[in-house]
């Protein structure tokens, strides 16, 4: 983090970002509005804190702006632009006979590639897609024309967000190596941190909605908020959210891959547990398309599924601990 943003300024930025997101429901317009507000400069000056501010606002507003592309592009050490997007969770399968991994130029060899991964809705308007491949001796980054990954209809549970799975064969000359200073691990860490702020921001929104409903909704002559079963569900949601927010802040002070994975996992757990509890509190209303819960639920499912879900990350982390046979202290006074 090169420039520390004071809490007061962070608050102002968060409000202006949130206002811009609410004003521009279309993801492309939202991206442009955020660029106009200085998102790219913020990311360059204070990548982690900038992402925390912007992604908290994404979670709270439910905006489908595609800032995750920028976070990954920046962490790979490539200049960000609203017309550059990335292939998330990318695997680029080369022919087994292709040259050794580790050489970015391996991408240039004479074999057809299968590009397999996720892209955000930015692919619809972008010119370039970056593909980063984690290789033995570093990270190879290649660029290709976004048009090759465009599909007529976005698929998936969250059409507004419009992440889509792509799996296409491309000609060899479709990819060109990119000189990138960043690496795969940093990109994954940055993405996980950003996603954790969006997840906790979303979890807060869901909890606020459920709390208000519990207070307003009267059954048996009293607010359903007075029933202990409801209260405990909401209390457990708050406990998880506060834990996840604390870990998110710890990550900001001192980022590292393991903390980012833990923060992402805890935030996913907080968001989906809160969504489940809110579902019960909101009951029938929460199952309708009229109530916005479903929008946040679907968004949280998608965010949790990116870069390792809350259920899968602990297994990865636990295996690391078993391999090394020790447990890092991680949280220091």
């Amino acid at each position: 983090m090169s420039g520390f943003i004071e809490p007061e300024d962070a608050g102002l930025l968060a409000s202006s970002f949130a206002a811009a997101m609410l004003d521009a429901p279309d993801p492309g317009e939202a991206d442009q509005a955020l660029y106009d507000l200085g998102w790219a400069d913020l990311l360059a000056a204070s990548p982690a804190q900038g992402a925390a501010i912007a992604f908290g606002a994404l979670g709270a507003t439910g905006s489908a702006a595609t800032l995750l592309d920028d976070v990954v592009v920046h962490a790979l050490g490539v200049p960000v632009s609203p017309s550059t997007c990335v292939l998330f969770d990318a695997t680029l399968y080369t022919n087994p006979a292709a040259p050794q991994p580790g050489d970015p130029r391996s991408l240039m060899e004479d074999n057809p590639f299968v590009v397999n991964g996720l892209v955000s809705s930015r692919v619809e308007r972008a010119t370039t897609v970056l593909i980063a491949v984690d290789e033995f001796e570093g990270t190879a980054v290649a660029a290709m024309d976004a048009g090759l990954l465009r599909e007529p209809e976005p698929t998936g549970i969250d059409p507004a967000h419009a992440y889509r799975h792509v799996s296409v064969r491309i000609p060899t000359d479709a990819v060109t190596p990119v000189n990138a200073e960043g690496n795969w691990e940093d990109a994954v860490t940055a993405a996980r941190m950003a996603l954790s702020y969006q997840l906790t921001g979303g979890a807060r929104w869901i909890l606020t909605e459920a709390r208000q409903h519990a207070i307003d909704r009267v059954q048996f002559g009293r607010p359903v908020a007075s029933f202990q079963a409801m209260r405990h569900k909401l209390a457990e949601s708050l406990v998880l959210i506060e834990g996840a927010e604390s870990l998110g802040a710890t990550c900001l002070r001192d980022p590292d891959p393991m903390k980012a994975a833990l923060a992402k996992s805890l935030a996913g757990k907080a968001a989906l547990t809160t969504a489940n509890h809110a579902q019960q509190v909101l009951a029938g209303m929460g199952f309708t398309a009229e109530h916005r819960l479903h929008l946040w639920l679907k968004r949280m499912l998608v965010l949790d599924a990116l870069y390792g879900s809350y259920k899968s990350l602990p297994t990865e982390i636990g295996r690391d601990l078993l391999i090394y046979g020790t447990v890092p202290r991680l949280i220091q006074l």
Binding site: S246, P314, G318, L322, I331
Partner: peptide, 26 residues
Amino acid sequence: DLSDTSAKAIGEVFLSLVAFRSRSRD
């Protein structure tokens, strides 16, 4: 022991403990 069962249980305990310790640090 590097089994999935052990890795998952250890990872989940570690996650809960780190969540607590982060909060308690604050």
